[in-house]
Simulated assay, not measured.
Amino acid sequence: MTQWQLLQGDVLLGELDEYGCDQPFFLARFVPGPGWENVRFVIEALTALRGPDPDGSRTAAVLKPLLDLDLMLVPVGGGRSLLRVVKDCWLRIDGSEARLRY
């Protein structure tokens, strides 16, 4: 399984360690890093988004700030390409658990 660093520029926001799969998502343990508190509220807003969103307005309101953060997942030890959050992959973090789709 892959290990990832969640980065905003050079700032480490946290680390993910994949441990399983619940198709179409990979399951990972999440450990916050030094920059986590600066972005936590934006990522938690995405995690809290549940239920129908017929016109997509609720999702758009959450995704815009997330896109503006320009977050990247960088594989530890290589072997995979880096992933831009939202553009290349879908990431949900809920406490110490993460779901990643790429």
Rank of each mutant, 00 (worst) to 15 (best):
V11D: 10
L66T: 04
A48S: 09
L66Y: 08
D55K: 03
A28P: 09
L91V: 05
R99C: 00
S57M: 06
F41Q: 15
A60E: 12
D55A: 08
L7D: 08
V62Q: 03
G14K: 09
L7N: 13
P34F: 06
L91T: 04
Q3L: 04
E97A: 07
D88I: 02
G20D: 06
R80Q: 14
V74H: 12
R58P: 03
A98C: 06
E15L: 00
L46P: 04
Q8W: 01
M1H: 11
F25S: 07
P54A: 00
R58N: 09
F30C: 07
G56V: 08
Y102I: 05
V62C: 06
D88K: 05
G79W: 01
N38H: 09
A48P: 02
A98R: 07
Y102P: 12
S57F: 01
A61Y: 01
D88L: 00
R101M: 09
V39G: 01
I93L: 11
L16C: 02
V74R: 12
E18P: 03
T2I: 10
I93S: 02
P24E: 02
G79R: 03
L83W: 12
V74Y: 09
V76A: 11
D55I: 09
W90N: 05
P75L: 00
L63H: 06
D10V: 08
V85E: 04
D53F: 01
G79C: 06
E97S: 08
A60C: 00
M1G: 13
W36A: 04
L16I: 03
C21V: 14
L100C: 08
L6Y: 06
P34V: 15
Q3D: 15
L16P: 03
R40P: 02
A98L: 04
